[in-house]
Design a protein around this nucleic acid. Structure first.
Lengths: 207, 207, 207, 207
DNA sequence: AATGAATGAGCATTCATTCAT
DNA sequence: TATGAATGAATGCTCATTCAT
């Protein structure tokens, strides 16, 4: 039935999407209320279930929808050939900050997905994660130019440190800017901060 | 009424504690069912509320209980005077792995606390967090021996990289060993793996 | 949501109304069971709360409903211009006996309202009472023809005696006929009895 | 078991009595909480049920206790030989106002008894009422000096008017003084007001 | 396609009463 | 005599889901 959802007029489709994204993002799967969603979207109870069968169906649809959106974004705007993992990850960070500004609700939703504890939904989620996320990661990390690294560096571990550091920085900034409206977010500043870490990592790991 | 809870025979007390910890850890505050808890604990509905007033009371009790347990563990077995932040954090990692083996449910519970979205409980949680967690962090990071670091290293950022890396490693191992029964967990192996990162960090940051 | 209640088919609407009126009338607000009401009405738990939000909402709806019904009855069928307070109050008595025959449950319900002790409902009740009841009383007592009274009679007190006497008679008859099925109630007899008191009061107070 | 209750030290007995009277008076039988009562009285749950078997037993004990207290008061201080029903009823009014000042909680309790809707308690209450109240009323009304009345007056009805009027006045004053602390109640004023009605009734009914 | 009335299992919480100590 | 831990049925209320229209 989900296929029919795309035949809806765009405006209504977005109203539903936004309402559901917001509700799930704020409250998580279990505590989100379909009532709230239909009220916010201005549609009837029945229609929601007509398209998505049940709450879980709606949730997983949103998940797939946003994962696809992110992956598309990533692989359209990322130079996969770039062997410099640091510059590549810098680019990823930039794309993420950009997306965060354009689709803040999406990030809240995806964060809630990561933290999802509801067992009936978690296993389904993990199944889907595996494929897309795993292969995306693999692609990104596939053609690393190892000649950039100093000799005697364990490159696998170095890459982990790079990823953990940049993720750690991202999370730290998210918490610090929690109360800043997304449209006022100063991405240049965030990137600058990120660059300082990248410089450190570069001088440590690169020749 | 919580004070009376401690006067219960140990076995029953633990049954209640374990049942609640497990249920909250698996489902989060909002979706956890007190019904499930009393059934698992083998006590009556009324008794739970006799001790903890309401669901929120039980949740926050568990939180306080485990935070105290962790803080006690940390500050009893940690040499706060040690200025070597890397060796100190190594010790923290070891203590965490140890605790994870002895109280695996506690970690799931505390993780669920961190991810809690339920607003009626979140504000209360944040209030409590502030004091204990913040001051604990401050104490641990208070007397760092900066003379150990290479010159020209931004020590603040270095410490962040250290923390993010070791946390990243911990999370990675948690996911990888998710299906290993906790009592079969090979802590020595985990520590060995951690030590490899610590060695890297040491050669990067220390003289 | 109450507005939707009136769009229900009459038969179901009355089943709900009657069940709730009876339950509240018998047990008062606090001890009435919404479970009992839905079972008696033959509807689901959810539906009741769909229409009335909560128990209090249902109770206050019934109160408003019956007060309006009584006030309508009173002011449609009562000659407010009649300055003869005794003949006017006789008419009121008659209308009350009539209503009691047609809507016996309503009287039990309204009696239970008057005696309500539940604090969360009492204040709301008093707020509503004030307006309608107070102004109704005022209207009824507004244009009394004082020239009908003997001189030297304290008319204010005389009117109180009239009201208390006729109310006293009403209550007495209610108790005496408690076990008589309402449809067998001989209103003519009741009115006759009332008339005897009215004659006494007339000879005492009127010229 | 109730007999044993009287063997308790007076102070504890009164704490229990007062707590129960207050709770029932405020909330009625059904909504009163035995928990509240034992907490207020400072005794254990078990003790209450040891003496009174169940909530109903406690309630009916209090009822019997206060009815006896009132009847004692009435028949000790009332001149039953007095054939002047108006002066006798004046005396009753005075005694009631006096009691109201000394035992305000008792009146709230007895009022709540009168309004009791709980069916399991109501029938029991009615059984007990019948005996004591009925015979008390009979005694008071037994030796009325009918020669005081004007001829052609229906004395039965006249007495009803007297009772309803004085009761009406009492209730009216109760409502008007609802917010006056009992110890500030100006009984002389209340009696004065009552006397005005008594004078009217006298001039209406007596030679 | 779209509605929203209707369902009923599920929820947290209360409370009179019991009983081992 | 006195305690208070323990019970479990009952309470008001919510919510995903169904289905006749």
């Amino acid at each position: 039935m989900i296929s029919k959802f795309f035949k809806l007029e765009q405006e209504k489709r977005e109203r539903i999407l936004n309402a559901a994204t917001k509700e799930f993002g704020e409250k998580g799967f279990g505590n989100a209320s379909t009532n709230e969603i239909v009220m916010e979207a201005g549609i009837s109870k029945g229609l929601l279930f007509h398209y998505f069968t049940n709450k879980k169906g709606l949730y997983l649809f949103l998940y797939d929808y946003y994962v696809e959106l992110m992956v598309d974004e990533l692989f359209t705007k990322l130079d996969l050939e770039d062997g410099d993992i640091l510059s590549k990850w810098r680019r990823i960070g930039w794309l993420k900050f950009e997306l965060m500004k354009r689709h803040p609700e999406m990030f809240d939703f995806l964060k809630s997905v990561y933290e999802e504890t509801d067992s009936e939904v978690k296993s389904e989620l993990e199944k889907r994660n595996y494929d897309v996320i795993e292969t995306s990661y693999a692609k990104i990390l596939s053609n690393i130019d190892t000649s950039l690294f100093k000799p005697n560096i364990d490159i696998g571990r170095a890459i982990n440190i790079i990823i953990w550091t940049l993720e750690g920085y991202g999370n730290q900034q998210k918490i610090l800017t929690k109360n800043t409206p997304m449209d006022l977010l100063n991405i240049e500043k965030l990137i600058e901060g990120m660059d300082e870490y990248i410089e450190m990592l570069k001088s440590m790991f690169y020749k």
